[in-house]
């Protein structure tokens, strides 16, 4: 087992770059919403939101440095969220 005090942190410079990226992505998602692509707009918005979420997860929430337990349990949560969403639509879609 790794030592308890494994100190991992990101330098301020990296954090500022992440913030700038997130602000830029916010701008892109607003611009994209003005282009009328019908239902595709929703998917584009969700896609950009997922990219932004990943940046927060990896850098601000330090997931990049975390061990297997946290990474796998997080993926497990996303998996169950996926089951919840897809089974609901399965039900609603074939009623």
């Amino acid at each position: 087992m790794k030592s308890l005090n494994t100190q991992h942190f990101f330098e301020y410079k990296i954090l500022i770059n992440v913030l700038l990226t997130l602000l830029a992505l916010t701008g892109i998602t607003v611009i994209a919403s003005y282009i009328d692509l019908g239902k595709m707009n929703v998917w584009i918005a969700l896609f950009i939101a997922s990219i932004k979420g990943s940046f927060i997860l990896f850098f601000f929430m330090h997931m990049k440095y975390e061990g297997r337990v946290l990474v796998l349990s997080f993926l497990g949560t996303v998996f169950f969220l996926g089951i919840m969403i897809s089974f609901t639509f399965w039900d609603v879609g074939f009623r």
């Binding site: 998602t29 707009n41 918005a45 969700l46 950009i48 939101a49």
Partner: peptide
């Protein structure tokens, strides 16, 4: 993170 999903769903729907 949750707000990042709320924002496009409510404010930017098409």
């Amino acid at each position: 993170l949750i707000w990042i999903f709320i924002f496009p769903l409510f404010y930017l729907v098409i």
